[in-house]
Simulated scan of single mutants.
Amino acid sequence: MLIAVGLGPGDPELLTIKAARLLREAEAVFVPGEMAYNLVEPYRSDAVTLDFPMTSDESYIEACMEENAKRIAPYAMKGTAIFGIIGDPNFFSTFSRLTAILKRDHPEIECETVPGISSITAFASVAGVPISRSFSVSDGSDPDVSITLKVRHPKQAAERLRGEGYSEFILVERMFMEGMAVFSGNELPDESSYFSILYARK
């Protein structure tokens, strides 16, 4: 198994308790650079630093991804390997590209993620700006994902979003709480808990 663990925004004390435990228990820990290594070092000093180049050369990036996947695979096949990544592994990270190669070459390897404090939420704390209304996040490209909080009528919300060009929907209700449920596609319920998040993608 390979687990991508979010390391937070840059402070070793902002790792979650679960992240610290997994780092200590794993057979092997890999990180994408010196900054990530410095974050995991208090918990796992034998972490292996891999090369993930910051370049626009797609062929070179792909070659590095292939090499990194080959190094991680043996550990992920026989036990639990951790890939520690700054921020959250599901937000603007290299993990999705890495797992695509692993799933292609080693479909038997299970891949999971453990969330970390992202730069989006950490920014509000550092800047001292509470966010209490809707906001948008962008890397400069045109958005193709919408995330809506507190969705009490998910079917109705999905129909509205379909009119805006969205076609893929996932609802998570009571995330990490008792009674957590995940709905997708045409299975969206008419009503849901206050603690619900609707993901939509064009």
Rank of each mutant, 00 (worst) to 15 (best):
E34C: 09
E41K: 15
V126E: 14
R160Y: 09
G33A: 08
F92G: 05
V31K: 07
A73S: 06
T55D: 02
M77R: 15
V5I: 07
Y60A: 14
K103A: 05
E173A: 10
F135V: 07
G33V: 06
S196H: 10
R97W: 11
V31T: 06
G8K: 02
V172Q: 02
T16D: 03
A122K: 11
H106D: 02
L23I: 07
M77L: 15
F169V: 01
V40L: 11
L22M: 12
F135L: 07
K202W: 08
S134C: 01
M77P: 07
H153M: 04
T94G: 03
E110R: 15
E13N: 07
A47E: 04
S59H: 11
P154S: 05
S138Q: 06
S118V: 10
I101Q: 06
M175D: 12
P53E: 05
M54K: 07
L15Q: 05
I197F: 03
C111N: 11
E25G: 07
M54R: 06
F123R: 04
G79S: 12
M175Q: 12
F95S: 08
A19N: 02
A73N: 05
R44E: 04
D57Q: 04
T16L: 03
S193W: 01
F95T: 09
E187Q: 14
S136G: 14
I117A: 10
P53D: 05
P154N: 00
D139Q: 13
E13Q: 08
G185M: 10
A19D: 06
L198Q: 03
I86Q: 08
E173C: 01
V29S: 02
H106F: 14
E41S: 12
A73E: 06
L171P: 01
A100K: 06
A69R: 05
L14R: 00
Y194R: 03
R152N: 00
F176P: 11
R97D: 09
D190Q: 12
N90M: 12
I147F: 01
L161D: 01
M1T: 11
T16Q: 05
I101W: 08
Y43C: 01
V172W: 01
E168C: 02
I147Y: 05
S125Q: 13
D11T: 00
V5N: 08
K70V: 02
F176S: 15
S59E: 15
M177F: 13
P143F: 14
P115L: 14
D105H: 11
V145A: 02
G84Y: 07
T80N: 08
K18A: 13
M65I: 14
P107V: 10
T49G: 06
V151N: 04
S118Y: 03
E108V: 09
V172A: 01
C64S: 06
I3A: 12
S119I: 14
S125W: 09
M180W: 12
S138E: 05
E191C: 05
F195R: 10
I72W: 05
I17D: 09
